[in-house]
């Protein structure tokens, strides 16, 4: 099995929100890296998970599938999932796969944080 080409960094940005900085390629092989980052954020007490895609290099359909399963876990835990930093190209892909129906998409971290606390 190929190695994941994805790195994450978890930042606590307020009492109840964590940003997961995503860097690299979001593919099927990134599942463990993403899950570990999510668990770290949850252990830190986050009720809002914000994915920062500013340094996303590539995402295929399996990567989109990972986001769907992450979203289900987040909804089950009564948390919220927001994103920012998606390029126009990936915003289109969220539209195509209809992820934008369920995941908040923002341009900047400030906008996502404001929405998190609205």
């Amino acid at each position: 099995m190929p190695q994941p080409q994805l790195a994450t960094n978890v930042r606590k940005v307020s009492d109840d929100a964590c940003v997961l900085d995503i860097e690299g390629e979001m593919t099927a092989f990134a599942e463990k890296v993403l899950t570990d980052a999510y668990n770290l954020a949850t252990d830190d007490g986050a009720r809002v998970i914000i994915l920062n895609f500013e340094n996303l290099q590539y995402m295929n359909s399996s990567g989109i599938g990972l986001l769907v399963t992450l979203l289900v876990r987040i909804n089950r835990a009564k948390q919220r999932l927001l994103t920012y930093g998606l390029s126009d190209h990936y915003k289109h892909i969220f539209e195509l796969t209809r992820l934008n129906d369920a995941i908040g998409i923002f341009d900047t971290e400030d906008q996502a944080l404001n929405a998190a606390h609205a």
Partner: peptide, 14 residues
């Protein structure tokens, strides 16, 4: 329209 796993009715399966 296209319809993804978020738009369906039943339990979600992988």
């Amino acid at each position: 329209q296209l319809s993804g796993p978020l738009q369906g009715f039943g339990p979600m399966w992988q």
